[in-house]
Each structure stands twice: as structure tokens, then as C-alpha cells.
Design a protein around this nucleic acid. Structure first.
Length: 276
DNA sequence: AAGTGGACCTGCTAGC
DNA sequence: TGCTAGCAGGTCCACT
């Protein structure tokens, strides 16, 4: 489910409400991708700081309690979502983590359990350092330019779609937004990454930023049941140009949208508008 | 080093 | 109606 816009929309929907809260207890359900990495009781009494986002990860700083100083690194995987409130619905079978605080309960619902909640002593040590160190630039980082993308793609033989998805050059565009950005940039997803010209790299950067910004403004994409921590749905799925539109007419040239598989992920594209 | 495929897990849908 | 295969928004890891 969650690519950068969904994660950011989620963050914005509960960051202010949880900041300053005191952790009362922590409930751990079925195993997620990795174990929490700390005894839940150690977190009691800690104070929640300002929630940050890096790529598709959220970082919830914690100060005090038996843990001393650290935080929780949260990833929503494919099917995760967070809810925060004082009167959440009764706990369901897919609710696998709860942080009970003085200002409300933060709950992770994740049917497939590809998500993770990990304790780390800081952002640049422990689990957080390990997982975040391989990440590329944030999409809205001024350092992300066509020139930068061109330099990083140099010599790469993999298809441009997979290079964008890999996340070691630029983070945040997952399968939906990678397809969308490539369409808007007019680039064939099969194009060898290292062969993209500078101007096309510049255009791709622009379109990645544009599609993510648009999705953000529309509250993200709710294909199945994505909701932010207030329970609100996103609407970007209504604006999609190619994703999920196989056989439907291209919004530019009316050619039926094609679907193929790259790296075991579906790619949607227009065989006329997107060129090698 | 870069690239590929498998793995993790559950729910839903299309098709027989 | 009921079963099954195939598919889903992510990304780490082992292997070539």
C-alpha cells in the first residue's frame, strides 16, 4: 500500500496529536518482519517526540523510561496502516502493535505483516542506521537534480523502472508512482537506466516530484483500504494515468494501456507515449 | 559490483 | 456455489 505520499499523509495525521505524550504500555501481537528489539516494558514512561519521516519509514523519537533514549522505526510494508486516537475500534485480528500513550493509542494494522516496528537507540545507530543508510535522496531534496540522477544511473544496465524502484538513488516512488512518473516523462520503463540522456533525467526528476506532490495533495492513493491515522482515505487513485488501467485508453493518445512484468512487479505504460 | 529471483504473509478476485 | 490460481502499494537477502 504505502509509498511516500501515504506514509507522509499518515505522519501528518498524527504527529501533532501524539507529540509530548507519555508511553503507558506497549502491546505486541503476531510477529512482523522483525522483532521489536526491546522489551516492551522498557518503553513505559518515555515521552514521544516529533515524528519524522525518512523515505517510507517513520521515526518516533522516545525520551526517558527504562530505555533512556531511542525511538521506534516504523515501516508499513505492503498492507500496513496506522491509526491514532483515544477511542479506536476494538482490536482486530490484524492489529499487531499498539503504543498506548497518555494522548491516545497508536495502532498498526497490517494483514500481510511485511511491516515492521523496531526500536533503535537513535537514527544513526542500531537498526535505524542499518536500514536507512542504503537509502537514496529524498524526492524533494534540492540535491536531487537531473544531473545527480544522470550521474547515479551511469553504467547501470537495469531498466529505468527498476532503478527508480530500488530506492538507493531516490526514495519514495513505489510501484504506482514509478509507473506514473515514467509515463508523464514519456520514458519507456524498459529503457536501460544508464542510457537516459541528461534532459530526460531532468524531466524524470521533475515528474517524480510532481506526481508525489500531487498524490500528497490528494491524501495519497487508496487502492484497497489505505487510510491515514484519522481514518481518512486518499483520492489519488482517481488521477492515475496508467497504473491499474490495462486495456483502458491512454489519456493522451487513446492507445490501450499495456501491462508487463519487470522484476516480478507489474508495470503499466503506454507503448506509444513512452519511448526508448 | 550489479543484477536476478526468492522469500516473507494474508486477502481478494477472476475464472473455471 | 465452491475451489484455485494469480495478484497486490515493499524490500531484504542469498546467489550468480
Amino acid at each position: 500500500m504505502p509509498e511516500l505520499p501515504e506514509v507522509e499523509v499518515t505522519r501528518q495525521s498524527f504527529a501533532k496529536r501524539i507529540e509530548g505524550a507519555t508511553v503507558e504500555s506497549v502491546l505486541v501481537g503476531k510477529p512482523l518482519r522483525w522483532p521489536l528489539g526491546i522489551e516492551p516494558v522498557q518503553l513505559a514512561g518515555a515521552k514521544v517526540g516529533s515524528v519524522q519521516r525518512r523515505g517510507k519509514y517513520l521515526w518516533l523519537p522516545l525520551l526517558g523510561g527504562l530505555q533512556g533514549q531511542g525511538g521506534l522505526l516504523i515501516h508499513l510494508g505492503m498492507s500496513g496502516s496506522l491509526a491514532f486516537g483515544v477511542n479506536l475500534a476494538p482490536k482486530g485480528v490484524h492489529d499487531h502493535f499498539e503504543l498506548v500513550t497518555s494522548q491516545g493509542v497508536l495502532r498498526l494494522t497490517d494483514p500481510r505483516r511485511f511491516g515492521a516496528v523496531l526500536w533503535s537507540p537513535s537514527l544513526d545507530s542500531g537498526w535505524a542506521a542499518k536500514l536507512l543508510s542504503t537509502l537514496g535522496l529524498e524526492p524533494f531534496d534540492p540535491a536531487l537534480t537531473g544531473e545527480y540522477l544522470h550521474a547515479r544511473l551511469k553504467g547501470r544496465k537495469m531498466p529505468i523502472k527498476q532503478a527508480i524502484l530500488a530506492g538507493d538513488i531516490v526514495v519514495g516512488a513505489g510501484n504506482i508512482y514509478a509507473c506514473e512518473a515514467l509515463f508523464m516523462a514519456g520514458i519507456d520503463p524498459r529503457m536501460q537506466a544508464g542510457k537516459l540522456s541528461r534532459p530526460r533525467c531532468a524531466r524524470l526528476v521533475e515528474q517524480i516530484q510532481l506526481v508525489l506532490r500531487q498524490a500528497l495533495e490528494q491524501g495519497g492513493t487508496s487502492l484497497r483500504d489505505f487510510k491515514d491515522a484519522y481514518g481518512s482515505q486518499g483520492h489519488f487513485q482517481l488521477s492515475t494515468q496508467v497504473y491499474g488501467r490495462e486495456g483502458e485508453p491512454c489519456r493522451i493518445c487513446a492507445t490501450p494501456i499495456s501491462r508487463m512484468v519487470q522484476g516480478q512487479r507489474a508495470t503499466f505504460y503506454c507503448r506509444v507515449c513512452q519511448k526508448k
